[in-house]
Design a protein around this nucleic acid. Structure first.
Lengths: 337, 337
DNA sequence: TTGTAAGCGTTATCAG
DNA sequence: CTGATAACGCTTACAA
């Protein structure tokens, strides 16, 4: 690989001059500039970013940590796509690190990005506790923002959507439509998001003085198959329900499929609600209602904050990203089972 | 940030010794090893990978270039997930670069990865020609493998699936089942993959002496919506068909939806075939048949080859990755329109 | 078994 | 406007 020194020799100048030409810092006569560019073209020179970054102590990269349990599906694509796009708009590069499927691996992924000297880091945690992330933020000088968690201490370092409130609103809406028996399929309950959505369900019932019935709640594992299985469980429990809320779209899709196969009218009803995904699901299952989480906006906010912490400049802090309830299809009030 | 020098001082040794302890190269007495580890723990030292990589001229990273037109959907998630997993299994890190949506931007993405000194590079091209990629491979000493294209000159640097053959086989299968009027929704025809699948369709017809009828072919743009639109076009053309093949699953899903809304029996039939995706689609649309492209296996082969080019070792060259036709549902022979 | 010192390819400070 | 030269933080002969 040809280095800056070779370019310098070929152009009959010093390394320093070549560096100036490339960076645009400092004065260089037009004449030598031309010679340098010529030499660069002739030699096919390419700067070594490792060397550059080592010298400047800046890498122009943002790191992103995501568990690979999130890698599947539309939500992740959307997240990644937007993160990459906005990062590049700010003249930086996104580096993705896999948080795999444990707290320890999430820590390692963060550590890798720090060792690579990313200028700033975005964490979309699955296993790390908020306490630990608060500590991590305190321990490091690099700007770090946490997505989808509400931090206590470093509030300005987190961007989240209030899952409990969204869930409560969605369920309340069903209640106001006349539903009293509402089934709920939770996500994995070791995930905060899963827990928050469940407590939103509980809160909505309480708010309307409807007693909570445990037999209407089934635990799923975020997948379509587990949503279908949950419906089977409900049916074998012989418990009647006129509406169903699932903690994400994938499970809602599985649930609708299972209801359909059991010859139950739900797929045509508005009364099945999911969360998160927005792309293909409603296209295929027009009856599926959903609470859309504004990923794009959240990523936008996240990256703006990081860039602000790095470069300063103008800054608009946006506190809340409420989920948006999108209702489709028409109401079918009757009990399904 | 604390550096290796500070650790060395604290442990009362030289930088070199610390380096030896960390890398495991060269002899160090157990005693000093212990002192060094202690000093590392006390100081919270972390190696600077930029410096290390600059010195070793190795980064332990593989670069991956993908157009962001691919970012949406299951196929991409699957690709990325497997690439990341396998890369890490080989003790490396995957760096993703966005090829955006033009040849120029694909070139820039490749260049960035080269400038970052990735040890090797995987290109999943959308706009670059095979000729240019052959040149790129020739020009650089880093191992480069191209996914989903058949290179002429650097055959061992490409991993692909024969889309034309898969498409031809799928269409032939329909013909053997008794279908004569088979509609075809192409992908964007500026994409080689789109072109290959279409020519497979033509070849199958020719092979069975069925005349090609242009009115049975509609151009889509890979999206569910364009699949639905294509069906509308077919219906307004008033042309009868008893089977339909779409160049990918997304369009097939859109097509099925549109057929369904037009009260046509297709959704229950085996006779709609898509390509690529495998995760959610058939779960939601059980009748959808599909040619599954073995992404996982292809990524596996790609990474093995790269690692072989880097480290040597054992190596199994796998030439062909045929698509796998997965038929679902039952045959409905009658014409749909 | 350990230390010294010369790189790795840039940037950045200071003279000139 | 340009050139030396000292960093940046690490690895790796070569000596000792």
């Amino acid at each position: 690989m040809t280095t800056m020194l070779e370019v310098a020799k070929r152009a009959g100048v010093s390394k320093a001059t070549v560096s100036r030409v490339l960076s645009g810092n400092g004065y260089v006569s037009q004449e030598t500039k031309d010679r340098v560019f010529q030499a660069i073209a002739e030699s096919g020179y390419r700067p070594n970013l490792l060397a550059r970054n080592l010298a400047t102590k800046r890498t122009q990269t943002l790191g992103l940590v995501v568990t690979n349990t999130l890698y599947h599906g539309v939500y992740f694509s959307e997240l990644l796509f937007n993160a990459a796009r906005m990062t590049e708009e700010k003249g930086r590069q996104l580096i993705l690190a896999d948080g795999k499927h444990s707290a320890e691996e999430e820590r390692e992924a963060i550590q890798y990005l720090l060792d690579m000297r990313c200028d700033a880091i975005i964490i979309y945690p699955r296993f790390l506790s908020v306490e630990e992330m608060d500590e991590i933020i305190d321990r490091h000088e690099q700007p770090i923002v946490v997505l989808n968690r509400r931090l206590r201490r470093n509030a300005s370092h987190s961007v989240w959507s209030d899952h409990k409130a969204s869930s409560q609103a969605a369920v309340s809406r069903l209640i106001e439509m006349g539903h009293r028996e509402i089934a709920f399929i939770t996500g994995s309950l070791d995930s905060p998001t899963g827990g928050e959505r469940l407590s939103g369900y509980r809160a909505a019932l309480a708010q309307h003085n409807i007693p909570l019935r445990d037999e209407l709640v089934v635990e799923g594992r975020w997948t379509p198959a587990s949503g279908a299985a949950a419906v089977s469980t409900l049916l074998t429990r012989q418990v009647a329900f006129s509406a169903l809320v699932a903690s994400n779209d994938d499970m809602a899709i599985g649930a609708i499929k299972q209801l359909h196969e059991s010859n139950i009218a739900a797929p045509q009803a508005v009364s099945v609600i999911g969360f998160d995904d927005v792309a293909i699901a409603p296209f295929i299952v027009p009856s599926l209602s959903s609470v859309r989480i504004p990923v794009t906006e959240m990523i936008q906010e996240t990256i703006s904050r990081l860039i602000f912490m790095l470069d300063g400049g103008d800054f608009t802090f946006r506190q809340s990203f409420p989920g948006e309830l999108i209702l489709r299809g028409s109401v079918v009030p009757g009990p399904y089972a």
